[in-house]
């Protein structure tokens, strides 16, 4: 189980990486921590011609609060988030999510940017950050742009990044000290990928996400409306009815566990 041949290019700066990506011939993959890409390459499910290694690029691993946003660099590891480096209530939420991602030895290498750019439907961050709101920053041939997290994950392993763009970080909302959040991941072993995710935050707006679907995570507006109106509990049966109206391709079992996840996320938000 060894990867196919590829060319490894060690990037010294973001500019160099963006240029290299723009000029690359053949399939090119950007390597963050490599904890998702590594296994796929070992299994030869991914066979890039060129790998752009960001591990020596500086400036992508910062965490800073700037007024009403928190900037988190793409190369911030899950472990740093687990260890509480993201401040405030937003940090509490993200710490909870990070702690449940894989195992410490993977969290030490794996990065939040890599996870979101990779867009595995069962991964935590695409769902968790959609529930938080905010935006992705990306650098490409045409400079830096900001992309809303709403709709950023398009489908399995597919995002709104352009072919020549590198995800550089996130601008995330600061949850107020009294803001509620809830996150519920259904899996059978700590650290495993999720079978279902329910994620809820009540910041400036109420956001509720159904995640770990066959495709992209999605916001559930009916639940958000209820939360916005002050409802603090949504039964599993209600969530089932609501989710059933979405075209998520769930069978009965999947519908049930996603409904439980979201119902319990709401419950967790007000616990």
């Amino acid at each position: 189980m060894k990867p196919a041949k590829f060319e490894h290019q060690r990037m010294a700066s973001l500019d160099e990486a963006v240029k290299a990506l723009g000029n690359a011939e053949g399939e090119t993959r950007v390597l963050g921590g490599g904890q998702s890409l590594g296994p796929m390459m070992n299994l030869r499910l991914a066979q890039p011609d060129v790998v752009l290694d960001l591990s020596k690029v500086e400036g992508l691993d910062g965490i800073e609060e700037t007024g009403n946003a928190i900037r988190v660099g793409a190369r911030v590891s899950h472990a740093r988030i687990e260890d509480g480096e993201v401040p405030g209530k937003t940090g509490d939420y993200m710490q909870f999510v990070a702690t449940g991602i894989s195992y410490r030895s993977v969290r030490n290498r794996g990065t939040i940017g890599g996870s979101v750019a990779h867009a595995d439907p069962s991964a935590d961050w695409p769902s968790a950050l959609l529930a938080l709101g905010g935006s992705v920053t990306a650098a490409g041939g045409n400079g830096i742009r900001t992309i809303s997290l709403d709709g950023f994950t398009v489908g399995p392993f597919s995002t709104g990044l352009g072919w020549d763009e590198i995800l550089t970080g996130f601008e995330l909302p600061v949850l107020g000290t009294d803001a509620n959040w809830g996150y519920y991941k259904v899996n059978r072993k700590p650290g495993e990928f999720a079978d279902a995710i329910g994620a809820v935050t009540l910041g400036v707006e109420a956001r509720a996400v159904c995640g770990a679907t066959e495709s992209a995570p999605f916001r559930v507006t009916e639940i958000e409306e209820r939360l916005a109106s002050g409802v603090q509990e949504v039964s599993i049966a209600e969530v089932r009815d609501i989710l059933d109206r979405y075209d998520a391709g769930f069978d009965d079992y999947e519908l049930q566990i996603h409904a439980v996840a979201l119902s319990r996320a709401v419950q967790g938000a007000f616990a």
Binding site: Q35, G38, D53
Partner: peptide
């Protein structure tokens, strides 16, 4: 820090 050496490229 502990890491998985099977999914970390030597070059990295």
């Amino acid at each position: 820090e502990p890491v998985r050496s099977c999914i970390t490229f030597a070059a990295v």
